[in-house]
Amino acid sequence: MRETVAGVIADIRERGDKAVSEYSEKFGKWSLDSFRLSDEEVGKTVGFARHRLDSLREFEVETLPGVPLGQEHIPVRAAGAYLPGVRCPLTASAHHLHRRPHPHRA
């Protein structure tokens, strides 16, 4: 398996989105012509992200002496994720669809 994964990663590094599209079709039976979001999609996603960020707070708590735990928000220029068989217009939608169900609301 390690060799297979290494081969897929090497192929994607070499051929980029074309290889991602082919692997998406092969493993997930779904692909797009382009994995880049349009300016409109980026705008919608950024607007949603701003609302989410406004609702989150950064914090740090020392749980034991010398053991700080916390949450920090660091913006990134670009990110990607492969979610087999998921057809979602926004990356955040895919995240919400793949979270574990709440034990009391399953």
Rank of each mutant, 00 (worst) to 15 (best):
K18M: 12
V86Y: 13
L53W: 01
H104E: 11
E60D: 01
V61L: 03
P103F: 07
V20W: 14
F59L: 04
L37I: 10
A92P: 01
R100E: 08
T91W: 10
V42P: 00
F35Q: 10
G85R: 09
H95P: 02
V61H: 00
S55L: 08
A19S: 14
G16L: 11
C88W: 03
L64P: 01
E62M: 04
A79E: 10
P75Q: 02
K44N: 06
W30P: 01
H95N: 12
L83Y: 15
A78C: 09
K29A: 15
P84K: 04
D54V: 10
A19Q: 05
D33Y: 07
L32P: 01
Q71K: 03
R50C: 03
D17W: 08
H104R: 13
H51A: 14
E3G: 05
D11L: 10
A94Y: 04
V5I: 15
A10P: 07
A49H: 03
H95Q: 13
D33T: 12
A94Q: 03
S93C: 14
L83N: 08
K44A: 15
H95D: 11
L97W: 05
A92Q: 12
M1F: 02
C88E: 15
D11W: 10
T63S: 08
H51F: 06
R36P: 02
V61K: 02
L69M: 13
E60F: 02
A6M: 09
V61R: 00
M1P: 00
A92N: 07
P68D: 03
A81N: 08
S21T: 10
P75L: 04
P65Y: 06
A92G: 05
G47M: 01
G7S: 11
V46L: 06
T91H: 13
M1L: 04
L90N: 05
A81Q: 12
R36W: 11
G70H: 00
R99K: 12
P101V: 11
M1E: 02
V42N: 03
T4F: 11
G70D: 00
K44R: 15
G43Y: 00
S55W: 02
G16N: 09
I74Y: 00
S93G: 13
E40S: 10
H104A: 14
A78G: 03
R105S: 11
D33P: 07
R36Q: 14
P101Q: 08
K18Q: 15
P89S: 14
R99F: 12
E41G: 09
T63H: 06
I74L: 04
V20Q: 14
R105V: 05
G70Q: 00
L37R: 10
E58S: 04
V76E: 02
E40L: 07
H51M: 12
H96F: 14
L69A: 10
R2N: 12
V42Y: 04
R57S: 07
K26G: 05
E25V: 05
H98N: 13
R105M: 09
R2P: 01
E14Y: 09
H104T: 05
V61D: 01
M1S: 05
A81M: 14
Q71M: 09
A10E: 14
G85V: 06
R50A: 06
T91L: 15
E22F: 11
G80S: 14
L83V: 12
A106D: 03
E25D: 13
A79Y: 10
F27Y: 13
H98G: 05
L56D: 00
E3Q: 09
E40A: 15
T63E: 09
E40H: 04
E58R: 01
S34K: 09
R77N: 06
Q71A: 06
T63Y: 08
P101T: 10
G80L: 12
S38K: 06
